[in-house]
């Protein structure tokens, strides 16, 4: 028994019929071909599958596709505007904040939500590390990701709290 869902993904309206048990992560990857959302654990810990659901960071492996009915999703594919990288993406490149790139989309979206949340951001090492402590990375040791957050915050005009 399939269910109809209607949602907005990266600004485009999507209508599909889905199995009730289909994970949102699988829906994005397999039904919509948005393979930039990666699946690292399927139990909500690693953060690789992080997307923005109505502007808030969420783990798409912990949601069913049917739960996304009526929401607005943003995935890594929808972050950059045209040729220009989003400031968080550009900061990752500048700071060498990625190696294998598998966890990167999840980090970029979690950090985007964090920086878009408020006008001022605490850019101390400890505060940034707390802010990104919902995502696992095995390559970078996080140090350059911390730096990328700082670079992105500056580029986005965030005042230091």
């Amino acid at each position: 028994m399939k269910h109809a869902v209607t949602l907005t993904v990266n600004g485009e309206r999507v209508e599909r019929e889905v199995e009730p048990r289909l994970l949102l992560s699988d829906f994005l990857r397999h039904e919509l071909g948005l393979t930039g959302t990666h699946v690292g654990c399927e139990h909500g810990v690693c953060g690789c599958c992080t997307i923005l659901v109505d502007g808030a960071a969420a783990r798409s492996c912990l949601m069913l596709a049917v739960q996304a009915d009526g929401v607005e999703l943003r995935t890594i594919e929808g972050l950059a505007e045209g040729e220009e990288l989003h400031p968080v993406q550009a900061a990752f490149r500048e700071a060498h904040g990625l190696q294998c790139g598998f966890c990167t989309p999840g980090f970029v979206l979690a950090i985007t939500a964090f920086l878009e949340e408020s006008e001022t951001v605490d850019l101390s090492d400890g505060a940034i590390r707390e802010a990104i402590a919902g995502n696992l990375c095995r390559c970078t040791g996080y140090q350059n990701i911390v730096e990328a957050v700082r670079i992105a915050a500056r580029a986005m005009g965030k005042a230091s709290a």
């Binding site: 990857r29 948005l34 393979t35 930039g36 959302t37 990666h38 699946v39 995935t75 890594i76 594919e77 972050l79 950059a80 990288l85 993406q89 990752f92 490149r93 500048e94 060498h96 990625l98 790139g101 598998f102 990167t104 989309p105 970029v108």
Partner: peptide
């Protein structure tokens, strides 16, 4: 020289191509 990486733009845009992709 610490040049920025050639692979980054693709990976940052979600255009990486891992086996499951």
């Amino acid at each position: 020289r610490s040049v920025a990486r050639n692979e980054d733009e693709r990976l940052l845009r979600g255009r990486g191509m891992y086996v499951d992709d």
